[in-house]
């Protein structure tokens, strides 16, 4: 049964029950969601409490940065960084509308200043520097703000000696900031080089969808790369590739599972297990107690040797 039919029947049922003020279609849609994969109708509240995963077929709905942070972090632990950082229009970019107007529209629609929220939080007791991207804001695209916030998040990780986790969801670089957007790929990768040099861990979580300049920079530089089931991840989009090579691609092309099979990611983790997996991953790599002890012993040994 499709959604419209279902609502029509429901309206009939309600008319039979003589409900005087039937809900509008928008109100129904807010109350109910249909699974993109199995077409099941799910009560929005149930879907939300099931971490936006379809209870019937396990389809992972796309979720925003706010919901992601709520799902992953310990309650009340998230302290946002750089919440006031906003985009400007450095190139005075104008397509069919000005970029300034599009920025305003995007913020109204998403309720966000830009396509990423960053902060310090704890995940099952492990303190981390956490970033979550939001596809609902400007297609999750990376311009100067996303680049700057990622760089600052990584710096916060270095300063506080914390592992960094970034949950990506992005269509790629933001065209309206031109070459500045391209250079954010360089900026974020350079920041991660410093994190790498500091010996700190970076976990990249790829979610539906992650493409273009984001995959070709920080999203694929994780020490560990995790993807959510069914997420589509790649550099070039499926349609562009099909047009270029003039052949149909396999159905599962660029899905998380396909990437796993091709050796591009470490694991596919279902949403209910994500927080736990991240916490365990961090815990496993916290061996700072072990390493200095070895180094120290060696230094002592040489100095004793010299004295003799």
């Amino acid at each position: 049964m499709d959604l419209k039919e279902w609502f029509a029947n429901r309206r009939k049922r309600q008319e039979n029950l003589e409900i005087k003020q039937p809900l509008t279609t928008e109100e129904y849609c807010a109350l109910w969601k249909q699974c993109f994969q199995c077409r099941e109708l799910i009560y929005t509240r149930d879907l939300h409490s099931n971490l936006s995963v379809c209870p019937k077929c396990q389809y992972h709905f796309r979720i925003g940065a706010q919901e992601r942070i709520e799902q992953l972090t310990d309650e009340g632990s998230f302290k946002e960084l750089d919440s006031s950082l906003s985009s400007t229009d450095p190139l005075k970019f104008f397509d069919t509308a000005s970029y300034s107007n599009r920025l305003e529209e995007a913020s109204k629609k998403s309720g966000l200043r830009d396509a990423i929220i960053t902060g310090i939080a704890s995940i099952q007791g492990k303190e981390v520097a956490l970033g979550a991207m939001d596809f609902a804001h400007f297609g999750g695209s990376m311009g100067s703000v996303v680049g700057e916030k990622v760089a600052r998040l990584v710096e916060a990780g270095i300063e506080n000696h914390l592992p960094v986790i970034i949950v990506s969801s992005s269509g790629g670089a933001r065209m309206q900031e031109g070459i500045f957007s391209l250079m954010q790929m360089a900026k974020t990768s350079a920041a991660l080089e410093s994190l790498h040099e500091a010996g700190l861990m970076y976990i990249s979580v790829l979610t539906e969808p992650t493409y273009g300049g984001v995959t070709a920079s920080f999203a694929f530089l994780g020490d560990i790369i995790i993807a959510e089931p069914g997420a589509r991840i790649g550099f070039a989009g499926r349609r562009v590739i099909e047009q270029t090579i003039r052949q149909k691609l396999p159905n599962d092309f660029q899905t998380a599972e396909y990437l796993l099979k091709h050796g591009q990611i470490d694991m596919v983790v279902e949403r209910p297990k994500l927080a736990e997996t991240l916490a365990r991953m961090i815990d496993f790599h916290q061996v700072i107690e072990f390493r200095p002890r070895v180094a120290k012993t060696k230094v002592e040994a040489t100095s004793t040797h010299r004295e003799q």
């Binding site: 790929m185 070709a216 999203a219 694929f220 691609l249």
Partner: peptide, 24 residues
């Protein structure tokens, strides 16, 4: 970059990203 199937399967996103990190 080339939008081709093999290029994606051989992970061109990672190849570009890794170059950026090494160059840095």
């Amino acid at each position: 970059a080339y939008p081709g199937m093999a290029a994606e399967e051989h992970n061109q996103a990672e190849a570009i990203a890794r170059n950026l990190m090494v160059l840095a």
